[in-house]
Each structure stands twice: as structure tokens, then as C-alpha cells.
Write a protein that binds this DNA or RNA. Structure first.
Lengths: 142, 142
DNA sequence: GAAAAAATTAACGTTAACGTCAAGGTTAAT
DNA sequence: ATTAACCTTGACGTTAACGTTAATTTTTTC
């Protein structure tokens, strides 16, 4: 497998090196491994995940704490599928699933609300742009 | 006309009193007027505008600086319509209109990009929610 | 008109998310 | 085996957007 050092990861993700190290510092994202000398090494999958985190932050405006929760959801569900489906205490499983469901539901509500509002802003801006363009055309036809 | 004091404005907009005063402090938003004794008085229109600013911040993640620019756009266009349509130097008018057009175009691009990404996240979450619900149903049918 | 309730300014505090050195260790290229 | 280029870990600095507290004024209510 191929490994990348932090500078290339920064270029490929659009994050700064400092940000990537910071995410590790607060326990948000660990590199695939380190070299003998302690240099951070990342895989392509790592890069995809960092990109995803960056997009979530940019688009949804999540804090890093919220992103952590968001990323955990996928993981938790994966765990449910594989691991302790048969093993663990059933009650605890249901509780966990319900909590996931509630979190996801809240996030979906928020996304729907924002998309609705965004559509409004978009329309307003499109009308505004239209008026501006008409004003410009009028001035150039003279 | 009816006037409201800051406490009521805060309740009606969802902003805190501190935030409202801060917006004034940085020159982002001025109340309609003050009382003799210096107490801030707001109109219904003020409240609508504050609500709008709050939504822009929440949904688009704009900084207060960006919100200022955003609010100025509408105003500038208003000015163009009424005031110096005939009076001012035509060259300057065209420059201003072009700048507005460019700003709005950039904002629209950004909104379209975000809505696209949001739609993706929404789909992912809906699928995830689906799987969670199926998991829960399976557990309750036993 | 006195007391309570709410408003004002001023000023310092807080938090997240990095930016920016500095001092030193690792790796790659000659 | 040197450099040069890149990496590491501290550790302190910065910025936006308020929160909080305190000391005074204004307004409202009884």
C-alpha cells in the first residue's frame, strides 16, 4: 500500500498541515501509521476521510466535536453489523440503536431546514442578479 | 409606530441581548432610534432584518463581515434604483453594478455547491436511518 | 416618589480552531 | 556523509463572537 506524508495530504485535502495535526491532537483523526522515525503516514482512504470531514465542516458548519459524533455514527453502525450482533446484551443494543436513530433524525431535520432556507436565499439572489444584469444591459445600450 | 426594547427583540429574534448590542458596536446594525434616556428602540422591520441576519449566519455560515456585505447589496441596489440613476457619473455606476454582479455570482456558486453536497449528506443519512430502523424492527419482532 | 425591574456602558474573560515561531530530529538527494 | 528539504513536538499568539460581571441610569410599577 502507498503512504503519503503530511505535506501531500494537505495539498490533496485542502486542509493545512497544522489543521491535520490538530485533528490528531484532539483525537479526531489518527494517521494510518508512523514511520520508524515518527513521521505521520497516510493512506488514500485517510485522505478521503479527511476530505469528507472538511466538507462536512464547510457545508454543514459543524464544529469538530459534532464532526466527531457524525463520523462515529457510521462506525457504530458498522460495529453493530459485524461484531456483537449475537453476543452483547440485547437491551444495550437497542438503547444504542435508538440513540443513533435520534441523533440522525435531528441531523436530518437540521439539514432539511437549512436546505429550505438556502433555497429561499438562492431565489432572492437570483432575482437580484437579474435586476443587476438588466441595469447593466440598459446602460450598455446607449 | 410601535417600538420594542431589547429584551423583547431578543426573544423575538432568538439572538441574545449581548449579540444585538455587539452587532451595533461593530456597526452592523443600528436600532431605529433611542429614547430620551438612551434606551435602544426597535421597530418590527428591525426585528425582521435581525432575524434575517441570524438565519444567514446559521444557514450559510457567513461571518458578520460577510453578512454586512450581503446586507449592503440589497441597499446598494435600492440606491441605484431611486437616487443617482440620472445624476452620478455613468462610469462609476457601471463599475458598481459589475462589482455587485460578481459578488452575487460568487455567492450563488457557493450556495449551489453547498446544496449539492448537502443533498449527498442527506441521502447518506437517510440510508443510515433506514438501516437503523430495520435493525430496531428486527429486534422488536422477537 | 420609592422601590423594583430593566436598560446602559465599560471592561475583562472565554472558546474553538487553528497560525506562527523555535529548536531539533528524519529522509532524500547529491 | 553532508546538505537541503521536510518532519517532529512544544508552546505561545490570534481572531471572531460573544459571555459575564459590575457599577450606573432609566423606566415602570405600586
Amino acid at each position: 500500500m502507498e503512504y503519503y506524508k503530511i505535506d501531500e495530504v494537505a495539498r490533496k485535502t485542502g486542509l493545512t498541515k497544522r489543521a491535520i495535526r490538530y485533528y490528531e491532537e484532539i483525537g479526531l483523526f489518527q494517521p494510518a501509521k508512523r514511520s520508524e522515525g515518527g513521521i505521520r503516514l497516510y493512506t488514500d482512504e485517510d485522505i478521503q476521510q479527511l476530505k469528507r470531514m472538511s466538507e462536512i465542516r464547510e457545508v454543514l458548519g459543524f464544529s469538530l466535536q459534532e464532526i466527531r459524533r457524525f463520523m462515529e455514527l457510521t462506525e457504530e453502525l458498522e460495529a453493530h453489523r459485524r461484531g456483537y450482533r449475537q453476543s452483547d446484551v440485547p437491551e444495550k443494543q437497542v438503547e444504542e440503536l435508538k440513540e443513533i436513530r435520534d441523533t440522525v433524525t435531528r441531523q436530518l431535520d437540521m439539514i432539511r431546514y437549512r436546505m429550505k432556507k438556502m433555497t429561499q436565499f438562492k431565489q432572492e439572489l437570483e432575482e437580484l442578479l437579474d435586476r443587476v444584469n438588466k441595469g447593466l444591459a440598459r446602460r450598455e445600450n446607449q
